[in-house]
């Protein structure tokens, strides 16, 4: 049952993301030519912002899973940790890649090493790479899990820093455009496409977390069965 729900969420999330892209390219209104160096590239925003939102959900799952493993020694929480790391890596790379495409068109450079938000988000993605590759290369055990969970727990501090970075340090990354109440806040058709993107990415990432948790659970069951089989034979 859970498998069907997870796969269903993936399907609907993916269909929503594909619809968002079609609407972003063909239906969403254009921005003012005077406000941007590359107005067409602005449309990548309908992918970039929902992907970053999904990344924060994934890193939230990583944080909860890490804390749950460290403090409760819960197997379910360890599965949430591994699923959060994998989902954080995928959505982090999507966000960084789409941001680089936009930066190259708008700023003339894909990355700015002086911008706080870019660098803290980049570090978060690197953390997810470390956790995913590290888990794949290390034998499973309490010490290994503790090390990775500690990184997941303390690494989460980068999430609020990334969130407030453009509010405190206005360097290069644009500031918030949703719900600010001033004239830079987006609304109407643009807001609708962005909302569809945010909902689709949320559904999609929850589906992925559910599926990844199931995969980890199956891997653990398989290891236990094989160990039992080895003893019998």
């Amino acid at each position: 049952m859970k498998q069907k729900v997870g796969e269903g969420l993936l399907f609907f999330g993916f269909a929503g993301i594909a619809s968002t892209l079609v609407l972003a390219l063909l239906w969403a209104p254009s921005v003012s030519i005077d406000a941007f160096e590359s107005p067409a590239a602005q449309r990548i925003f309908y992918w970039h912002v929902p992907a970053a939102w999904a990344a924060f959900i994934a890193f939230g799952a990583l944080f909860v899973g890490s804390a749950g493993w460290l403090f409760k020694r819960s197997e379910v929480m360890w599965r949430l940790h591994t699923a959060g790391a994998e989902a954080g890596l995928a959505t982090g790379l999507m966000t960084v890649w789409s941001g680089c495409v936009w930066g190259a068109a708008e700023w003339g450079t894909p990355w700015d090493w002086t911008d706080v938000r870019l660098n803290t988000f980049g570090l978060l993605t690197l953390l997810a790479i470390y956790l995913v590759l590290g888990r794949g290369s290390q034998p499973d055990g309490v010490e290994t899990r503790d090390t990775f969970a500690a990184f997941g727990l303390y690494g989460f501090v980068l999430v609020p820093i990334t969130y407030v970075a453009t509010r405190i340090w206005s360097i290069r990354h644009p500031g918030p455009v949703v719900g600010t109440g001033d004239e830079s806040s987006i609304n109407g058709d643009m807001g609708l496409v962005l909302l569809l993107g945010a909902i689709s990415f949320t559904v999609f990432i929850i589906g992925h977390i559910m599926n990844s948790m199931r995969v980890t659970s199956l891997e653990q069951r398989l290891e236990r069965l094989q160990a039992t089989m080895d003893k019998v034979i």
Binding site: Q3, E7, L10, F14, I17, A18, L21, A24, L25, A40, A41, R43, I44, W47, A90, M94, W97, S98, V101, A105, F204, H208, N211, S212, R214, V215, L218
Partner: peptide, 24 residues
């Protein structure tokens, strides 16, 4: 280039999803 970037990302997440479901 924007359409290519979008399409590339869509293909990437489709592949990722396919891999996870097949693995399961």
């Amino acid at each position: 280039y924007l359409a290519v970037a979008y399409f590339g990302m869509l293909v990437a997440i489709a592949l990722w999803t396919y891999t996870v479901v097949q693995r399961s």
